[in-house]
């Protein structure tokens, strides 16, 4: 279980996270929804050690990981699919996947995982020698997810995987998220597409300007008036 307590982050003078707390139980899909600038990405980035937090704790199976090096965090089984996909455009799909396994050394296991990723995304296998920059947005998102899976994660954190994708592709991405979760990977999902996210999630947290305003199960939040008004565009 990944447990975040009182996490607080400043960017210069801006207080981005006002001591947020959330729990990600093993095997679940937890989603963090909220408007632009609420601090969702900052939460994920500070868990990964990409952004320096100034207070609080992130414990992963009882171990404190706040302040650890990103490499250590990846090795411990937490990985981030960054916002906007961020594949390596001039490198081939194969090389992108190999880089996903950067923190690992067992070649046979890495190759087995590469085959597993290819079985999840057959499109990537067809084009494995192609440069990632030549892929479509949806394919790039698949590659970004596949690359993250190459680190053999126990927790997969995804930052707005539906951003800028066609509705059909968004549906596919959410199917994949469910499938990955069924294979035993815990998922922490940050989304602006609140409806799609809450539909797959066991638990949801709603963030507003750097703090968590309320939480509940995915179904509860979907039915909640405040959520319906603010994020689902219903009156």
């Amino acid at each position: 279980m990944l447990s975040i307590k009182n996490l607080s982050v400043h960017y210069g003078g801006i207080h981005a996270l006002h001591g947020i707390s959330l729990d990600v139980p093993a095997g679940q899909i937890v989603t963090l929804i909220g408007a632009n600038g609420a601090g969702k990405s900052t939460t994920l980035n500070s868990i990964m050690g990409l952004v320096k937090a100034d207070g609080g704790s992130v414990s992963w199976n009882g171990q404190e990981i706040l302040g650890a090096k990103t490499k250590t965090i990846v090795e411990s089984g937490i990985v981030l699919v960054p916002e906007g996909r961020r594949v390596f455009p001039n490198l081939s799909i194969d090389e992108n996947l190999t880089l996903g396994a950067y923190a690992r050394h067992n070649k046979a296991e890495i190759e087995a995982d590469r085959e597993h990723v290819f079985s999840l995304f057959p499109r990537l296998k067809e084009r494995h020698k192609q440069k990632a920059g030549t892929l479509s947005g949806g394919e790039q998102q698949m590659l970004a997810v596949g690359r993250a899976l190459m680190s053999k994660p126990k927790v997969l954190m995804m930052d707005e995987p539906s951003l800028g994708l066609a509705p059909l592709i968004v549906g596919m991405i959410f199917d994949i998220i469910r499938k990955i979760n069924e294979e035993g990977v815990t998922v922490l999902l940050v989304e602006q597409n609140a409806k799609a996210a809450l539909e797959v999630a066991n638990t949801g947290y709603v963030m507003e300007t750097g703090s968590i305003s309320f939480s509940g199960s995915g179904k509860e939040l979907l039915a909640d008036d405040r959520v319906r008004k603010a994020y689902l565009g219903e009156m």
């Binding site: 990964m48 990409l50 990103t70 990985v79 981030l80 594949v87 390596f88 880089l99 996903g100 950067y102």
Partner: peptide, 10 residues
Amino acid sequence: DNEIAAEAMG
């Protein structure tokens, strides 16, 4: 190609 992604890979 992408420094932030590289960092996120460890």
